[in-house]
Each structure stands twice: as C-alpha cells, then as structure tokens.
Nucleic acid binder design. Structure first.
Length: 1176
RNA sequence: GCCCAUGUGGCGGAAUUGGUAGACGCAGCAGACUCAAAAUCUGCCAUUCGCAAGGGUGUGAAGGUUCGAUUCCUUUCGUGGGCACCA
C-alpha cells in the first residue's frame, strides 16, 4: 500500500462532509476561540496559489486550537457585492447575481480540495437578502443615533429630542453648523421639516451636500480611501470634486476612540501607524488675528503657537469666505485672476505636476496681537479650505513650504531660532532657544508651546484645539450591485423604513447604466423609485375630508377594514400634499381657544408628556395629540353638523379607536371658563392610559417602533408630497463591517446576532488577511463595532483582538525576447508569420550594447531567415529592437523554455510558428522539432505581483491534483513566514512531498507491508518526540509555520535514522501533524488504530500531546569554547559545575593551551547552558 | 519629502531573551542500487588559502557598545509598502 493521496484525501473529505465534522455549536461549555479569515470577493479569475496562504494558516491554527480543547469558530463566506460584478454586467448584460453565483461555485470547489475545516453551515454572503436585511437594519440604527460628546458615546435620537425639547442645543452644538444655536422654545416652534433637518445634522448616518470624489468613468462617488493619486483605485479612472447629496457616516466623532482602541489590540505597528496616519490627529491652537481696517478677525490653526513671533505672512485658502471681503481695491484684479486660475485646475493636475509655488497678495494685513506687527495676508492653493480653519500663519524660518513661498515672493524672513536657521532652508526643530520672540525669549521651543497657548487663552483670542485629517466616510454609491438604502424621501425629509419592511430587496433592472443627474441605475426604475402609497385600496366609502373642495374632486379613504394596514392612503401624492398643507394652514389659523390650550400643554408642561398640534394621523388632523399615549384632544368648533362631516367623524372615530387612540373633546366654553379643569382632565387621562409603545430593549429591538425622531410612523408612513426611494446603494464596506458578528448566529431571523451568541464568541481572537484593508475595512469594522457597542447590541467595542497580515505571494514572471523591426519613424513591423525570439543572453548583450544591430542582422542573414521568412519585404531603412514579453510560467522549467509547449500554448497563438535563437546561437525552426538540439532557450525573470495578465499565476488545483492537499498545505507554509511577501516557486514542493512519503514509510513499507509496532520506545526516541512536541507547540502558537514544517522534517528524518516504527512515538506525532496535514494524519491514525481521531469528531477531549520536560533533561553538554569570541573547539562539561571547575577543565584542553601560547588568560566567561569564552 | 518594514549561500529561508551564522528544503555535484528509468539511499555543498591538519574572511556598507553582535546604538546605501501641500 503506497501513499495514494488522491484516494485518501477524497475519502476523508467526503467523510468529514457527511459527518458534519466541523459543525460548531454556540455551546458555552468549552472555552471559545474565534479564528477568522478576511472573506474573499469572489472574482471571476478563481484562486491562485497566493489566495489560500492565509486560509491555510488560519486552518492550521483552528485545528490546533480545537485539538487543545477549544470550541473553535472558523467560518467562511463571501463579500459578494461590489464593482467588478457590476462592471461585468455592464459589458455583457449578465446579471451580477448570476456571475456572482458562478464565481462562488468555482471558489468553493477550489477551497474544498484543500481540506479546510470551515463550518459551511455558517456561510454568509453580503449580497444575500437574508444577510443585507441586517446590514440595512444596522444602518437604520446608526441613522437613529447621534454622538454625545459629553459622554463620548453614541445615543438614540430620542434622547437628543428630549434634550432639544428641554434645553435646546446649548450643550450639544451641531456638528453640521457649529454656529447654530436654539432654545427649547425655538425648537418647539420649528416645523417638522426644520426639526428633521436639524436632527439630520446630528445623526451618525447622515445625508448632506458635500464635496465628493466623483468618478465619471465609473459613474459613482468614491470614498477617500478608494482614490489613489487622484484616480480611482479600481480601474485608474480620473476623479474630480463635485458637490452632491450623499450619505456619510460620522466617523470623525469616533476619531479619538479609534485611536485609543489601537492601544488595546494586537495589530502590527505598521498597521497601527497607517490607521493613526489616516486619522491624522494633531494638537494645536486656533487663534484669531485682527485684520486691519476690518471687523471680522482671521482665524488660523497652528500646531506651533511657539513660533508666533516668527509669523511673516498669512496664507488663506482661495475658497476662504474672507477673501472677497478683505481684498483691497488695488489687488482686486490680481486676486480674481488667481481665483480663475485655481478653479481651472483639476485635482489631478494639482497632484500630478511638480510642486509649483503660486499665490497672490490680498492687500490686507493681519495684526500680530503680541507685538502689533502688520502681517500681509496672501491666498495660495497650498492651503486647503477643508483642513483646520482654511488659514495658516506662515513661519518661513520653521516651515519649508512657508520658506519657499517667502523666497519666491520676496517676503522678508524673521529669524526666531538663531543659529538653527541658516537662511538656506527652514528648520522645523522644537529644540531651539527662542529669540526675537517677546515674552517667549529664552525659552526652549517645546516648552514655549504651552506658555504661548496659555497666554492666547488668557487674552481670549484663541484656544487649544485638536484637529483630525480624517473626513466623514462617504456612504453612498451611485451603483446597482449593493445594498439599497432603507430610506424614502418625502418633501426633503429622509424617512426610514420600518424594520418589518426589511430587507428592501434590490429590484431587477434591465440595464446597469447610470441614472439621470448623476444618480445610480436604480433611478431608472420609476415604479420602484416612486412610492405607490396605495397598497390596500379600500372600497369602504367613509366620506370626504372636510377640506376637500369641489375642484379637487377626489376622495381619501381611511383604511378601517380588516387586514388593512393603518395609515396607508389610497390617495395620490397630490392629496397628501393637501393634507400636509392643510395641517400647516390649520396651525396658522389656530383659534384663540386652541392657542390657550397649546400654551398649557406644549413643551411637556403636563407631567413631561409631549404634545403635537395639527399633526396628521392617517387622513385625520387632530387639534392636539400625544403620540406616546395615543391621546387626542379636540377643541370643538361648530362645523361638525353636516351630513358628510358626521359620516367622516364616525368613520375616523371607529378607526382611531381600533388603533388604540382615545379622544378628549372640549368646547370653547370649557376652555375659556374652566381651563384648570380641562388641564386636570387631560393630565388624569394621560396618567391612567397605559403606554402603548414599549421601551426598546436589546432582545426586543425589532419591536422598537417608531424609529425615534421620525415622528409618528402613521404620519410618515403615509407622508405625502413627492415620495421617492433613495436610489444610491451602500458601498462595499457596508456588508463587510459586521460580517464577523453574523457568523456567530447566521440563521437568526429575529435579530442580526443574538446578544447571547455575541457575548459567547466575543472578539475575533485571530483575524487573518492582507494589508490592503488597513484603512478601509478595518477602520469601518472598528467603527461599526463601537457604534453597536454604544447602543448596547454587543458587549465589546473592538472587533479584532489580534490581526495577522499575510504577505503577498508574488509571481515569478518569465519573459521571452522578441525581435521587432522598426522603420525610422519607430513604427513596428512585426514579423507576424515567423516571429523571432532570442534567448536571454542575446537580450542582455543587446541591452548593454555588446550585441549590435549589425550582429542581429548578421544572425538573421546567417540563418537564411531573411529569405525563408520573407524578411526582405522590409522597409529600406530600419532599426531592430528586442522587447520582452511575458510567457506562461507553467511551460518554463526553471528558466528553460519548453519550446514545443510554447508553440502550442493557447495564450500565444501568434507564436505557433516562431523561430528561436538559442543560447549558443543554434536556431530552432517550427518544422524540425524532432531534430536534436543541445542548446536551450533561456527566459528572463522578474518578481511581480501574481496576476493573470502577467501569465505568472499558478493554480492550486493542479498542484493539489499532482501532489495532494496535504503537500500543498505544508508547502505553502514552508515557503517562509506567513507575514512576509515572497515569490512563488513551484519546484520546492517536491521536497515537502518527499517528506510526507518518508513519513508514510515509517508506518508502511512497500516491500514489507505494515512496519509499525507496539514496541516500547527508547529514551532516544522519546527525546526526539518531545523535542518535536515542544517546538511544534511553540511554533504553532506564534504562527511560525515554516519552522514548524521544518521541525516535522527533522523529526521524521531522525526517526527514520533510528528506524523507529513504534506507535508510542508515531501516534503523538500524527496528532501534532494533523493541523498541518489532516488527511494523511487521519488515514495513518486509522491505520494504527488510535483511540480518538485527531480530526474534530472527538474534540470534547483535549487530545493534544503534552510536552514532558523531564525527558529532555541532560546531565552534561557539549560546550562551544571560543577564544576571544571565535569558536575553536567543543568540550563536554557537566551542567552542575562551578565557574572554578570550568576554568580548570578549559585550561587543560589542548586547543585552548595552543591558543594561550603559555600565557595566562585575562578572563574566562562561562554562561551556563550556553558557551565558554576565553579572553586572552 | 515624511513614516513604517526589510537586506543572511545559486534560491526560499533558520538562528525565539546578545552566546557554535547558514537549521530545513530546493537547485547543484559525486556515488550506491538498476539492463535502464523512476523511486530510494549515502556523501559534498558560504567564500578563500591549504594535499591535509588547520587558518583567514563573511549576515547591504562604515563606525560604536560588549568577553562575545545577524540580534543593541549611530551614520549611510539598496529594496518594498504607506502617507504626501494636513499648517
């Protein structure tokens, strides 16, 4: 029985699948461990050998932890929304859902072959409605939240409403418009729309007009991290700034917590550094400078207030609001010129060109508050409107840009740092002693910063200020293949859908092109966008509304029938407009009595209950309503006597009653004469009525209705006017910002993840993935986790405890070198029928000039190529060039090209009749491939990113087929440290395969059959085993899989040398090996009959071999003995020996004697268990 | 320009806390077995001087700390990555 890996691996994989060996339960009996891979985007190209690297590492670790007795969550899924599927749809018309499905099937079959221990029952896909239902739901929770800067925590909009109603916004300045303040009374007087606009400014997911990165070619906006050097990360298309309405996540509010959280998680320094950079926190001060002859001061932001006396000019951004006001008459024309110039330049031009110094003087002067110096104010594009205050104080002796600017425009430079400034370049030191600096003279700069800020604050002209480079995260895309926003727009107000209505599924579209006005494809589907608010038309006529006029001639039906959702209208949006405007009119046309009541009940004057006036409920507009208690108050007028009106009153009262509303009616006389009693009646009613709306709790979060801040659901449900769906979709990072939570409780239809499940699994213990997500995915996941934590849905605020970044496996590209003929205009005449390819040496010689144009001509002539292949039809004057061309690495053996395979290669059809000039100058013609050729065609090589277009991808399927999954897994690990990038080289895989076969032979010999025995192990064999146990355990724990593989090799080599075939030794070895090579381990375990299988089924016991240090104890050691630090000999010395004894033994040694040449040593250093060093 | 990695044989890499540099594997060379091939096994394999014994040099380069440095410090060069008018 030989090592038939194909059969073994297939059998075991089927067995594991049938037995659901890797099914994980949320059973809290065992300690948990969560090992997560970054889930892949299922691209059409399939896997290459670089993809599984991280998956194998995490699989080894999961299996290892499982053996050690942990309940290990190790799931896999797909990040299946995204641009490429949609681009593909645009080109081919294939629905993204279809291509995505196909791609996933390919991925899955490739993954399955490698023998992963995923619990596939927990699979998630971001594009699955059952998944994105909860992405939408979480979005709604974020929408329903604001950031309380006092408690540094997200809270519900409800709470903010209450604050506004009691104290206005004095304690919670709007993040949108910082200068905007209102009192509680003012808040009550704002109409609904205004209130909603204000609330929108506070929401953590908010919509606003802003400058966005618009990519015309992709037809969408992009987040900052999706734009690289002014072009789109995907596709490299130009990106411009554009003002559009967009959704954002208020990540800036979390800047500090995102920074602080980094201290509590185990990410690499590089990764933390990148996130810190992205957040870009800087400490400094904001201060006002008076502007000469103007009232408004100029506010600047600086991190170096200590340089205040070195300010020689001011620079404000061209877009700064003060520019037009302060520009002097003389400078007006120049400034306008400059502004025109700035506007004409795109973002890309600004980034692309060599830094130019441009700017223009405004003619205005700021006054230095400390010495009264007049400081000219300039504008220049190097100052950005969006950062700080959009204005800086320029200190040319300390800042290089300011220095260059001053030099360029001949602005005199004040030196405040003495010798530290040489007049040639600025010096940004903080170590200099200040000079020419008034009250700061003689202070060290870094000490002066605090002193200066204190003085600035004392004078009331500025204050300490922290600034962040990070901007709020754009959260909408004008694309199709993403989560639709669960939002409808009515009269400019964003109205969230109800949780019960989720998922809002992606509608089908016929074409994927952009919609009108920069909107996404969804905007093209009129039926979907324009909401039909007549889902349940009623036939029951209940009368006309009181305000209905003859001209409108329409009817509104209050839904009162069985089975009909309350609040829906079977009327057009026109009629809704009427309802709203009617309600508004009513507010204006309040009667005297209504005003009296309103003064008594507004602002929660009755026991804290909130009343609204003229607030529509279904088709009915009551005078006052307390939604919380469903209590309506009517002050009767005299219009209730008409026939229609009576029917209407009856119908609506029945409807209101059915829906839990109670009504109190008072007459005008009661209000005028018995106000106290009226109010008392209202208060009593309020207090006796049980609340209808439950407070939200975590487990009942879905029942939470209405969404706070949106007013009555009844109102918004039927909201009239133009009611349209949001047509943007969410960006790629939406679904990936919380998928690690869904794995914990993937099937839950009640909530995104039960709190019990998330409390059990908690943080991801090990997260493995590439560095490319440093600021995107990882930052957003951390943000969502923090928000969900603040809102009480989960119990931890950092998603990933430890992050391991796998390195990139690069491709080792191979090149052939093609001779091309060019005419003098450098136009290429390709030798189409018989292209000539020369071997590497020719190319190198050509590059370094030792092979000339003439040589190649000769070469061509000498081999009669000219006549044979029609090269004589060349232009009269021509040049020869040799150009490299990628060649499929799979047909190159090392560096030697397989010429016949090359001619047959489907990727290179044009070369099927190519002529090769080999290393020694021999020519290989297409016809004579039978002829014996001694020379070779040698390819050039280069290490590059592995990609299809470079023909350097290696498909894991083929390797698994040829060597087996176990060999493949171990070889990927053996390549080098997981974190390190390294080039792929298939050749070495043989060595690993040999190792597994050698292991197999410890159990089974082709000649002798079974060779394993039940004999008792010797000390030497136990020593080998326990050294291995120790090393494997340590290496696996610290993710050093490459050294672990080599340890296995050493162990098997040693056991083979010892001719050890003993079960006592081999069984523990198989357990150690099973995370790395699960199939062969399982097979051999069943061969020798182990008590439990190392693979999962019996993971209730901790079955991992335990290291016994006693077996490795030695009594003596071969000490390396060095003379003056150079090892000269080895001496065996007992371990429990004193320094004096060691010295004696050492000095008697021949080698040491020889080096001492009779002299006495200066010193003998003896480090127990390490070495001995003799100093002469 | 700034920040972060990283640099060891022909190649991938090892040396975990400053203690025998080059483990393990690939490639290569020599040999055994074989009609032959495959498979397997044995030996050699940083470089240099030497028949050998043995010695010199050697972890990008130059300095330093130390009895001892791939490891720590300073300077510098190369490579890879991130950020880039961020005041």
């Amino acid at each position: 029985m030989e090592y038939d890996f194909r059969k073994i691996e297939q059998e075991w994989q089927e067995k594991w699948k049938a037995n659901k060996t890797y099914k994980v339960s949320n059973d809290a009996a065992k300690p948990k461990y969560y090992v997560l891979d970054m889930f892949p985007y299922p691209s059409g190209a399939g896997l290459h050998v670089g993809h599984p690297l991280g998956y194998i590492a995490s699989d080894i670790y999961s299996r290892y932890k499982r053996l050690k007795g942990f309940n290990v969550l190790h799931p896999m899924g797909y990040d299946s929304f995204g641009l490429p599927a949609e681009q593909y749809a645009l080109e081919t018309g294939q629905h993204p859902a279809v291509t995505t499905e196909n791609n996933i099937a390919t991925f899955r079959s490739q993954l399955d072959k490698i023998g992963f221990s995923y619990d596939w029952d927990r699979q998630v896909r971001t594009s699955d409605p059952n998944y994105y239902k909860w992405t939408q739901w979480i979005f709604l929770q974020i929408f329903d939240s604001w950031y309380n800067r006092i408690t540094s925590k997200a809270a519900r909009i409800d709470e903010l409403l209450r604050i506004f109603e009691t104290e206005g916004n004095i304690n919670h300045i709007s993040p949108g418009d910082k200068a905007f303040q209102f009192t509680a009374d003012e808040w009550e007087d704002f109409d609904e729309k205004r209130q909603q606009e204000i609330l929108m400014d506070y929401r953590l997911a908010f919509s606003s007009y802003g400058e966005v990165n618009w990519c015309e070619a992709l037809g969408t906006v992009l987040a900052n991290d999706e734009v690289v050097n002014g072009v789109s990360e995907r596709g490299g298309y130009p990106v411009e700034k554009k003002k559009m309405r967009q959704w954002y996540l208020r990540i800036t509010d979390y800047a500090d917590r995102l920074l602080e959280g980094l201290d509590r998680i185990d990410f690499s320094d590089a990764m933390k550094e990148m996130q810190k950079n992205w957040i870009g926190k800087s400490q400094g001060a904001e201060m006002d400078f008076a502007v000469k002859d103007h009232d408004q001061p100029l506010r600047v932001y600086t991190t170096r207030p200590d340089t205040i006396f070195g300010v020689d000019f001011m620079v404000v951004a061209p877009e700064h609001e003060l520019v037009s006001g302060i520009t002097s008459f003389d400078q007006k024309a120049a400034i306008e010129n400059y502004l025109t110039y700035v506007k004409s330049r795109s973002e890309r031009e600004r980034l692309a060109e060599v830094k130019q110094i441009t700017g223009c003087f405004t003619g205005a002067y700021a006054i230095n508050p400390f010495d009264g110096k007049e400081i000219p104010i300039w504008i220049a594009e190097y100052v950005l409107a969006g950062y700080g205050t959009g204005a800086i104080m320029a200190v040319p002796c300390g800042d290089q840009r300011d220095f260059l600017f001053a030099k360029h425009f001949n602005i005199p430079i004040t030196n405040i740092i003495g010798d530290h400034f040489n007049g040639e370049a600025a010096n940004a030191t903080k170590e200099a002693i200040l000079q020419n600096s008034g009250f700061l003279n003689g202070l060290l700069m870094k000490d002066a910063i605090g002193v200066a800020v204190n003085r600035i604050e004392e004078l009331g002209i500025g204050k300490r200020k922290v600034n962040y480079r990070m901007r709020d995260a754009g959260f909408s895309r004008q694309r199709y293949w993403g989560e639709p926003f669960p939002i409808v727009w009515s009269d400019g107000i964003a109205i969230p859908l109800d949780a019960a209505e989720l998922p809002l599924e992606l509608p089908h579209v016929d074409k994927y092109g952009p919609g009108p006005n920069g909107e996404g494809p969804l905007a093209n589907i009129g039926d979907w966008v324009n909401l039909d608010l007549t889902p349940n038309p009623s036939t029951k006529e209940r009368g006309t509304l009181p305000y209905e006029s003859e001209e409108l001639n329409s009817t509104v039906t209050v839904a009162g029938e069985q089975g009909i959702e309350p609040g829906y209208f079977n009327s057009s949006s026109n009629e809704w407009r009427n309802t709203l405007s009617f309600a508004k009119e009513n507010r204006k046309g309040q009667t005297e009595e209504e005003s009296i009541i309103w003064q008594e009940i507004r602002n929660r004057k009755i026991d804290g209950f909130k009343f609204r006036r003229q607030h529509p409920i279904a088709g009915y507009i009551p005078d006052f309503v307390c939604l919380e208690k469903k209590l309506i108050i009517e002050i009767d007028g005299e219009y209730h006597n008409g026939e229609d009106q009576k029917r209407f009153d009856t119908a609506r009262q029945n409807w209101l009653k059915e829906n839990g509303f109670e009504m109190l009616r008072f007459t005008n006389e009661q209000v005028n004469g018995h106000l106290k009693e009226v109010i008392r009646d209202i208060a009593e009613k309020l207090n006796e009525k049980k609340p209808e709306l439950k407070e939200a709790t975590v487990s009942e979060n879905e029942k939470r209705q209405p969404l706070a801040g949106s007013g009555s659901p009844l109102f918004w449900r039927g909201a009239g006017g133009e009611v349209k769906r949001e047509t943007s979709t969410m960006p790629g990072y939406a679904g990936s910002s919380w998928y690690f939570l869904r794995y914990m409780d993937p099937g839950n239809s009640q909530t995104f993840c039960d709190r019990k499940a998330s409390d059990y699994w908690g943080q991801v213990d090990i997260y493995i993935g590439g560095t490319e997500h440093a600021v995107g995915h990882l930052l957003y996941s951390r943000l969502w986790t923090k928000i969900l934590f603040d809102l009480g849905y989960i119990g931890h605020d950092e998603p990933f405890k430890k992050l391991v970044n796998q390195g990139m496996i690069q491709g080792s590209s191979r090149f052939v070198y093609r001779v091309v003929i060019k005419n003098l205009m450098n136009e290429v005449y390709e030798l189409k029928q018989h292209p000539i390819l020369v071997s590497l040496t020719y190319y190198n010689n050509f590059k370094n000039g030792s092979l000339t144009f003439k040589n190649i001509q000769d070469l061509i002539n000498k081999n009669s190529l000219k006549t044979q292949f029609g090269i004589d039809r060349l232009p009269n004057n021509y040049n020869i060039d040799i150009v490299p061309k990628h060649v499929n690495v799979n047909i190159v053996d090392g560096f030697e090209l397989n010429i016949n395979d090359f001619r047959k290669d489907i990727f290179n059809k044009e070369f099927k009749d190519a002529v090769f000039i080999l290393e020694d100058g021999t020519v290989s013609f297409p016809e004579d491939n039978s002829a014996e050729i001694n020379s070779k065609y040698i390819c050039g090589s280069e290490v590059e990113k592995m990609s299809k277009s470079k023909y350097n991808t290696v498909n894991p399927d083929e390797l698994v087929e040829k060597y087996g999954a176990d060999t493949f897994r171990m070889y990927e690990m053996f390549l080098g440290p997981v974190e390190q990038s390294k080039p792929w080289d298939t050749k070495g895989i043989e060595g690993v395969h040999r190792f597994l076969r050698k292991l197999w032979r410890l159990f089974y010999d082709d000649m002798k059959g079974n060779v394993w025995t039940n004999d008792k192990a010797t000390d030497a064999e136990l020593k080998v085993l326990h050294r291995t146990i120790k090393k494997i355990d340590e290496d696996t724990e610290r993710f050093s899989f490459n050294t672990a593989v080599s340890t296995f090799m050493i162990c098997v080599n040693e056991l083979a040398d010892l001719k050890c075939h003993k079960k006592e030794i081999l069984e523990p070895l198989l357990f150690l090996l099973s995370p790395y090579a699960p199939h062969i381990s399982a097979e051999l375990c069943s061969l020798i009959g182990t008590a439990v299988s190392p693979i999962g089924e019996d993971a209730t016991n901790s079955v991992y071999p335990v290291f016994n240090p006693a077996l490795l104890v030695e009594s003596s050691k071969e000490y390396p003995v060095s003379i003056n630090g150079k090892v000269r000999t080895n001496i065996n010395i007992a371990l429990d020996i004193t320094q004096a004894d060691v010295e004696q033994i050492i000095l008697q040694n021949d080698v040491v004697q020889k080096w001492l040449e009779g002299k006495a040593p200066k010193r003998i250093i003896y480090v127990k268990n390490k070495m001995v060093n003799v100093v002469i």
